[in-house]
Amino acid sequence: MRKYIVRRLIISVITVWLIATSCFFLLRTLPGNPFQTTSLLSAEMVDRMMHYYGLDRPLWDQYVTYMQNLLRGNFGYSLKYAGQSVNGIIASTFPISAQLGLQAYFLSIPLGFLFGIVAARCRGKAVDYGLVGFSVLGVSVPVFILAAMLQYVFAIRLKWLPVAQWKSFQHTILPTVTLAFSSIAGRTRSMRTFMLEIVNEDYIKTAKAKGLSKYRVVWSHQIRNAVIPMIPTMGMEIVGMLMGSFVVEQIFAIPGIGNQFVTSIQNLDYTMTLGLTVFFGVFVVAANFIVDIVYGIVDPRIRVR
């Protein structure tokens, strides 16, 4: 087991390095430059700016400098938000997206599992159809429509909650629900599917034949085994939620990191995009690492290769 962990660890570090390297070079293949996105500058001025930020040096030279800084945990300065360090921007925007993501995640886990189990156990009954209907709604309504509708009903019409911004707990309710909605729906659906898939497995039959109570069969055999295939996606999902959602952050005017991710690419803010990519690369790789370890423990077949 220790050997397995060490090997996974080395692989993870190499993965992060590969992410940084490939992203660094991929970004530079995009045409345009980061200095003309807020105003048009003459070619001369652009050259001067490129020189000021060291972007006129040979690419490999820039790469070496970047990697040296990266090793020290320094992501450099944003090219669009002059004077703002990428570390600083991450430090101010990530906690907000993370809070929103975690709230949504922890709202979606119990509800998703619960709905999935209920639907599977009541297969073919009204409850099942109701929950299936809900889960279809969750995946068939685009987020921007859902956000607009929730905002319209609860903030504009009923005035129960504020329209937008990120200030207090009330302000977080609508974006959290919006973000969690499709995740609840998706989880309901997967849970229901997995539950039904294993209902005829031999071990369930055995358990039934042994005369276990229905509750025990469902709880200790069916649910547990249905959850296993969902573990890897759950790991990725939490990372996805921490990364913030561009649409939700736009509509609810939340100063999160998802917004930065999209705009930095649009603005060709190389250092910013790279910094965010590496930052999340570390997250994803760490999440995968943990998932692999957990999987290795849960399912020994994976470990022994």
Binding site: Q151, I156, V163, A164, Q165, Q250, A253
Partner: peptide, 18 residues
């Protein structure tokens, strides 16, 4: 000074007195 990019949100905040 508050920055809001979504048009609906912006107008709703104004109308709601936010």
């Amino acid at each position: 000074a508050v920055q809001v990019s979504d048009a609906n949100t912006k107008v709703a905040m104004f109308e709601n007195g936010e």
